[in-house]
């Protein structure tokens, strides 16, 4: 696959209370964004199980974003505290098994930060494009779908 045609597949986990609204704001403000990401709405960034990210990256997703409320603004008070700690460790583990840590992005987007959402998605998409497909050397193995 040449770099020119490579279209990364990105999952963005957005928390219901801040980041999803931020993404929504970016949308209604008609900000230009790459179209290669899919948003999955979760109730809190702490709901994002690290296993999901591991599974996504092993199964053909090229990059994962986890976006939550700013520290201190969590709807559940301390959910994003836990997310912050978990994913910084997960990055280290992914790097150790040969997945580039830049394929996972954790950041905070509030409901009013449509512009920040746009910047994050654009930059991340660019970065993942540079990195190329994740695990292309094992694409022939397919998991049966339910």
């Amino acid at each position: 696959m040449s770099e020119h045609t490579f279209q990364p597949r990105i999952i963005a986990f957005c928390c219901n209370w801040c980041s999803y609204a931020g993404a929504d704001l970016a949308g209604v403000s008609r900000l230009q964004m790459p179209a290669d990401f899919n948003i999955i709405r979760v109730m809190c960034s702490a709901r994002v199980a690290p296993e999901w990210i591991i599974k996504a990256l092993l199964n053909g997703i090229d990059g994962v974003m986890v976006l939550g409320c700013h520290i201190g603004d969590c709807h559940y008070i301390s959910g994003n505290h836990r997310a912050a700690k978990r994913f910084v460790l997960l990055k280290e583990m992914l790097a150790f098994v040969g997945v580039h840590p830049d394929r996972l992005l954790v950041d905070w987007v509030s409901a009013s930060e449509g512009r920040k959402f746009q910047t994050l998605v654009t930059e991340f998409s660019k970065r993942v494009k540079e990195l190329g497909p994740c695990r292309e050397w094992q694409v022939e193995i397919q998991t049966p779908q339910r």
């Binding site: 296993e51 583990m93 094992q138 193995i141 998991t143 049966p144």
Partner: peptide, 25 residues
């Protein structure tokens, strides 16, 4: 849905990475 029913290398890797992460700290 966590780990597919196949005993493929991807499922094995997901199991081992997941287990290692559960045991982190």
């Amino acid at each position: 849905l966590w780990v597919g029913i196949a005993a493929g290398v991807k499922e094995k890797e997901a199991f081992h990475l997941g287990r290692a992460y559960h045991l982190a700290a």
